[in-house]
Structures are given as C-alpha cells and as structure tokens.
Design a protein around this nucleic acid. Sequence first.
DNA 1: TTAATAATAGTAACTATTACTGATTTTGAA
DNA 2: TTCAAAATCAGTAATAGTTACTATTATTAA
Lengths: 125, 125
Amino acid sequence: MKNYSRQREAIAHALQNTTEHPTASAVYETVRETIPNISLGTVYRNLAALAEEGMIKQLSVGDSSDRFDGDISPHSHFYCEKCGKVSDVSYVADGVYPDLEKDYGFKVKASSLVLCGVCKDCNKD
Amino acid sequence: MKNYSRQREAIAHALQNTTEHPTASAVYETVRETIPNISLGTVYRNLAALAEEGMIKQLSVGDSSDRFDGDISPHSHFYCEKCGKVSDVSYVADGVYPDLEKDYGFKVKASSLVLCGVCKDCNKD
DNA sequence: TTAATAATAGTAACTATTACTGATTTTGAA
DNA sequence: TTCAAAATCAGTAATAGTTACTATTATTAA
C-alpha cells in the first residue's frame, strides 16, 4: 500500500464507510468533518486518482453529477429518478430484470449498459 | 404523430440518419446545415422533449457530454476511452462479455449497468 | 540539513447545460 | 379570414459541475 496523504486517506475512508454512492460534493462535506479546510479541488483530484488506480469506481447515472463507489466488487446499480438515490443490485442481464421488483421493490423503467475499453481501430498502437 | 416544428423534425431526422451517437453540439452542427440559424438552446430543449416522449434515448457514457441515440430498440453500448466513439453492441449480461473481443475487436476494460426507475420508498405515492 | 518533489488550499477559468426574454410562429375559436 | 392565446423560437445570460492554475506547505531522499 502506497503512502497516501492525510487528505487522500480520508477521502478513500469516507467511501469505504458508506453504502451510499456519494457525489464529489457529498464526499467533500463528509471529509470536511475531519479536515475542515480541505479543498474541493483536492477531493476531485484524489477521487480521480483513486479511480485511476482502481481503488474506487466512478459512476454516471444520468443526472448532473457523477457518483463514487468504494465497493469495487462486480455489481450493478439502480438509480431512482425521483429521490436520486443509487442502490446496489446484483448483476442482471441487461434488458431482463427477473425479480427486481419482487426482491427490491424497484419499478424499473429503463436500463443502460455501457461497456468501456478500447475499440478495434485504437487498439492498433 | 404529433405536429412538430421544423426544428424538432430536423433534430429527430438527424438522429435517425446516423449510426453514431452524437452529443447535443454534434446534433447542433448537423442541423445547422439545413437550418443555419437554429439555436443551441432549441437543440437541447427538443432533444430533452424527444427523449421524454421516448422517441430517442439519452445516454451517459462517462465523458463530459451526453450522447443521443435515434435507435430505441434494446441494445447496449461500447464506449472507446481513446477515441470517444460509441458503438452499438447486442445485449450482453453485465460482467460477462463472451465474444465481444472476437466479434467486434473491442478490448473491454470495465462495464456499468445502470437501471433507472422508481425505488420502493418513492413508489408509495 | 537541505534541495527536489509532490500535494495542498484557495481561487479562477472552463464547459455543458439550463433559464430567461422578447420576437415569431402556430393554433383554434369566433 | 381574423385575432387573441399558446407554443416555440433565436439569442443571450446564468448556473453548476469540474478542471486548471498558483503560491504555499508538506514530504522525500541524498
């Protein structure tokens, strides 16, 4: 484990101690409780760095701001378009949500599976 | 079919005539070829309206701007983190990309399945 | 100890998107 | 048709999330 700054440790810690999927500003507010003068820029920079090295996951759910997830084990997400809350769900085949309504009480209206990587053309070099 | 403005028709038409997944500004540039003085605000407003009524699909792939898709049939997307291009792929179970590399030449590094709807608590009213 | 390196706080800048405003177009009933 | 009400537009201003910059502070390693 590398030597992290106090700020980065606090940010990583904040994500590992919640089951929510906070935005950058929500992380900022949490970390401010222990490091009151931390800068929002520092939060963004460290979130990006942690995501880059695979310690956390960055998540676009469709609303204005990205979410961050300290749980990097494979799972999917449910986004409530009313309250904005993001919940974990186990992997499901896209387009088929067998028992989501029964298991979680979710009413699923849409789904979006995005794979990310490098395409054929860009893979040449 | 409702009565659309010339601008909205041109926007919908632009999306139906491409297999790419343009951003709002890309749609703006395309539509400007036929309606040179169309406003970017008009493009945003009509894209939102078309998405609202289910004529098109809005798509967050993780980079700065949203994409729009005139193809509303069920399918998933591949986002190339190098060139930014978005490609269609058939539905696959999240976390399992059987022959994507073989079929498309994609090197898949990450995946994100987001379901959208209304959660248990919000469904009460 | 001290010079080099890295990270920070605070702030300014940027960009995608939304809101606003007054003008123009469309609608629909008289 | 005609005219008032409603909708949509172009153009611009404002907002919000995020990134870049700068001078300062902390860390590293010789």
